[in-house]
Design a protein around this nucleic acid. Sequence first.
DNA 1: TAATTTGTACCTTAACATTTG
DNA 2: CCAAATGTTAAGGTACAAATT
Lengths: 456, 456
Amino acid sequence: MPVNSFDDYLLTWKPEKSKLSSPLYRSIASMLEYDIINGFLLPHTKLPPQRELADYLDINLSTMTRAFKLCEVKGLIYAITGSGTYVAPSVRNAIYSKEYQNIIEMGIIHPIDETNKMVSDTVKNIVNKDYLESLLNYSYPLGMPYHLMAAKKWIEKANLDMSVDNISITSGGQNTLALALTTMFNPGDKLAVDVYTYPNFIELANLLHIQLVPVKSDETGMIPAELEAVCNLVQGVYLIPTCQNPTAVTMDMQRRKELAKIINTHRLTLIEDDIFSFLGEENLLPISHFVPNHFVYGISTSKSINSGLRIGYVAYSNQFIDKIQNGIFNLNVKTSSFNAEVITELINNGVAEQIVLRKKQLIQERNKIYTKYFNIPANELKLSFFRWLPIPLKAAVNIEARALEQGIQIYHSDRFLTKKHSEAQFIRLSISSPKDTNELETGLLTLKNMLGNTMK
Amino acid sequence: MPVNSFDDYLLTWKPEKSKLSSPLYRSIASMLEYDIINGFLLPHTKLPPQRELADYLDINLSTMTRAFKLCEVKGLIYAITGSGTYVAPSVRNAIYSKEYQNIIEMGIIHPIDETNKMVSDTVKNIVNKDYLESLLNYSYPLGMPYHLMAAKKWIEKANLDMSVDNISITSGGQNTLALALTTMFNPGDKLAVDVYTYPNFIELANLLHIQLVPVKSDETGMIPAELEAVCNLVQGVYLIPTCQNPTAVTMDMQRRKELAKIINTHRLTLIEDDIFSFLGEENLLPISHFVPNHFVYGISTSKSINSGLRIGYVAYSNQFIDKIQNGIFNLNVKTSSFNAEVITELINNGVAEQIVLRKKQLIQERNKIYTKYFNIPANELKLSFFRWLPIPLKAAVNIEARALEQGIQIYHSDRFLTKKHSEAQFIRLSISSPKDTNELETGLLTLKNMLGNTMK
DNA sequence: TAATTTGTACCTTAACATTTG
DNA sequence: CCAAATGTTAAGGTACAAATT
């Protein structure tokens, strides 16, 4: 029975006692869900402490915890130990292409589509091959043997030597991540990630109910000691070793080895995303190389070769072969052989390398322009498609909307944040996306002026 | 403290007491996992009752339950109330293409690839279009506007009238199902399905930790009263209204309306898979038509138009727009515009309809051959790509392996079963997959002889 | 920095449902 | 059809950890 009378007590949310039914925790959760969905509780409203509600409803604290947990996994509320439970905002942070008119795109990272002329030439050649029909049927769900040979070749360029038995073809980088998370982890599992990471990965993890545990970084990437501190808590770790998104930080060999050692010692599962390896130094080895028994390694061709064809490669440890390959059947059945054929042909006829070379030239030029307006810290990748610009706190307010008013799409660091609170403020600027270098200059100049007052 | 001494007690599995550590339930689960993975416990081994283990380890019963639950979600064990807990077999039932030599394929359903000549002609035309490069970039992740118009047109042929705002392009039928399950349900949710259903759907649900609740059918499909009986338990229902896989049963309009009524009344989410609508009667309306506020409707073009290009269409209620579209970004980012263009062109230039017509002719011919050997029940779809053949219990033993020895791949009904135990025995015969009608006849004759002794 | 607030994790108790014999 | 065996579920109790003041 309640210790006090609550009749005149002010709670921000009061479930109706009379509507309680068995099971208690479900009936409470559905009342809360109803009130949030119907707008009676606005985003960021602080709910009463679990203890107060439990007392008010005359039930046990942990029954209340369970009710809240149900709503939390649905994304309706979020809880901070020591602080309280709050109604979740319904904003989505995932980044994807919108068809804007007259907006300079510096938000989403376009992979420099100028090289697509070289791709379309190869497409034209392929349709004249006499085996075209064999590319249009159901066979080889994991990739045709010579498609896998090309994949192996491409993965070797990133300094990972794999048997074709440990390689499959996926429908792009995001698809590889979805595959890795659904097959290697269970809902409720925890995964270590950088404090700032790729927002579509954050949303994917949310969708699959995999909890992210933020780990601090320094100028060389994730700090090994910080990973070690959480590794009894987590089942795996997600890393982008070259040109981490959004910070543009690349790990040196020492850091890669240090992280690998921790992953091996604690038998974590490594999800390595090597999407930008083609922009880094040629002698860097993937972390997976040092974690031969616990890795899933994804290397998309969307940024390096062509984005529209949606082809990614995934390589994995022997012990994961069954899980990954079965996951591919479950999520996709297969990836189109025609699309894989185009990428295979580009790799085999050397055009893929030309494309990479050309992209590097173009992005070097754009980075040079960038330095006319802002600095590039020494630890960040020179040839990055995007830059991570620190801004003062007072400049951060509504900065995305304010930039959009000036005709520029950018993203604020909060989108990339896996923690609840942010300290430092940044914006990520995609310098590969503006249509040409003139547009890039216009964008950078506008931003410089916008930030100007507050930057000094 | 244990009631009895267990030193001389015979348990099929004895966790080492000395290795217990906190948290108890995790340490027990990992000991069990270790013993299963390393082969100390063989599939179908019956584990000791939870109560006995709890007593032996001197811990609480529900701590033991929790430990077992951990292993169960990983697929290592399965439990039957009243009977016991058993080590799970590591077999996977998912059906996918293998590259067999000299085997007559009557297992996996190939969609009659003979019509792919017509597809490759259209592919050749497309590469000469001057907008080819625009098909190779990042834009329009949900589908280009005129691709969505073609999707609308194709969905209308299945008698569902949708706005393009409620349609997206996916990477095929399985991808649509993965999308629907990840976005519309949470792990632990329950979904009503036919007792026999599509095995890749069963595996997908397992992968995503969505529990399937089998619902009985009669000769017109799922029985409405049986669905009603479980609908307080489940959050949704998965239905294949035309040519249910594997039973080849098609629901009449009355059955569709009856099921729709229950879905509406109990606010279930309908996942409707209309993959075979092109083979059914032209005046049948999808169930989604009668459930305008609770449906996700998938119609793959893999069986009807072309399987290799991996294009599916998904239509959905207004209230699901955000969830589905966000799910597409999370799982795939986008589906290749080039591939969508090919299917669009085939729909717009009328070739898709010719393909369907031709497929219907070919499958009619093959069904005619089938009737020379086996009967087709009156309630099953005439133009089905596959047949569902009842067999006597004594014929069922090892039937897949025995058929394979004779050079024929077939699938036994247990693969399709969502319940633990089966009563009746069937085999599913794909009659669309043998290379030609001669091969089909050889396959059917061989099976007839194999079953001959036991069929009478 | 220490005390307090607040959410989290683990384990226990007890009632319940299904299968088996 | 009942009783026993066996797994499942809800809810209570306690210790702990993180954030706040």
